[in-house]
Design a protein around this nucleic acid. Structure first.
Lengths: 193, 193
DNA sequence: CTGATTTCTTCAACTACTTTAATTTTTTCG
DNA sequence: CGAAAAAATTAAAGTAGTTGAAGAAATCAG
């Protein structure tokens, strides 16, 4: 598995020497998921945080009518997991599923704690990760209050152009909080206008 | 100003001895806000995190049409601020305004950093605070995707019963993402049903 | 490659929510 | 307290988004 993407990703925020990088990689386990396989199930505890080396996943909840509501997508170079469940050890409310065949590098909580001990600057890295997730969620709440469906779709495409190509519209609709039918209508209007 | 509420709040998560409590209080500055006064303005950097001793505030954005979208409320015993701006030193996207005459205890970033040095377990406390905020936001996104306006209102009242009594309906509507007119209709239906 | 499955599109009828505007009720603050 | 301002209610007309159903297009798995 291509581990250099993980190192690169971390080095966007903190610098690692060769020994640190080696130790770090020794604490991450590769994992492969077939399309449609589950990485996490509602009610389980999320034992690892996963770095996506290749592929694509969705984090979602299921309501009582069986409808999916997508909280986030992840592709190469993103981190995925239920941070809440991972940090507190409590049951997750969410499912995580591969949308494509996916390769991950996973770190468990004990191994991450060991990493913090031996490479303290990694605390900084994960703090930044948490901050960024927090900010992204705050923006999303703001947008869900400020924008109509067309505006939210436009922002989504602008912010994540790669996703538009790659993720089925049905899933994008479940992220935006609208029906696939309505998204199809919006897209038609946009190409016309 | 009543500082014991702050100590109590912190002791819900970490235990402080007398000396630590004293040091801690020495780093917090009291601040009083008249109703309608601003604690933070969009475009400013959020220099302090504030603990609410008494009163009530709202955190909101203004869209291009001048409509308010409320991201959170805070009352006695809550922390308020723009954590993103506070942590990164970048401009805030939000306004914070007092809904009632309000008393705060504020800590600046340098003073908080000093506190971390001298009372390391305070890092734990603020990490828990960040985690809780993160979880709350995640749940809110999930609800905005899963529930209609009636469901969101019901959940809001269940989760924050105190707010229902205290905060004008207009503001609650701006939090739920609906118009005050529609909220009024929902309430009428609920008392009937 | 092929049949089976999933996804996308289109349409028409429907519902949740908004807008505007007028009236009443509550709150504010001098 | 009392005048003025802000908030809440009601009703009617309008719009954004849903639902269900059916066919076309794309994708998947053997």
């Amino acid at each position: 598995m291509n581990t250099s993407l993980l190192i690169q990703n971390i080095e966007n925020h903190v610098r690692l020497d060769a020994a640190e990088a080696e130790l770090l990689l020794s604490l991450f386990q590769p994992k492969v998921l077939k399309r449609k396989a589950l990485l996490l199930r509602q009610g389980e505890v999320c034992r690892s945080e996963s770095f996506i080396v290749k592929g694509c996943v969705k984090v979602y909840s299921l309501d009582e009518n069986g409808f999916e509501h997508i909280l986030m997508f992840g592709i190469e170079g993103w981190w995925v997991g239920d941070l809440f469940s991972f940090l507190t050890g409590r049951e997750s409310r969410y499912h995580i599923e591969a949308l494509e065949d996916t390769e991950l590098l996973q770190v468990t909580k004990p191994d991450l704690d060991q990493l913090y001990e031996q490479v303290p600057k990694m605390e900084r890295f994960f703090r930044i990760l948490l901050q960024n997730a927090f900010i992204a969620h705050m923006e999303r709440i703001d947008q869900s209050l400020s924008l109509d469906a067309a505006g939210r779709y436009e922002q989504f495409i602008r912010k994540y152009p790669a996703f538009g190509q790659r993720i089925p519209q049905k899933q994008i609709a479940a992220y935006l909080g609208i029906t696939p039918v309505f998204l199809s209508m919006l897209r038609k209007k946009m190409t016309k206008g």
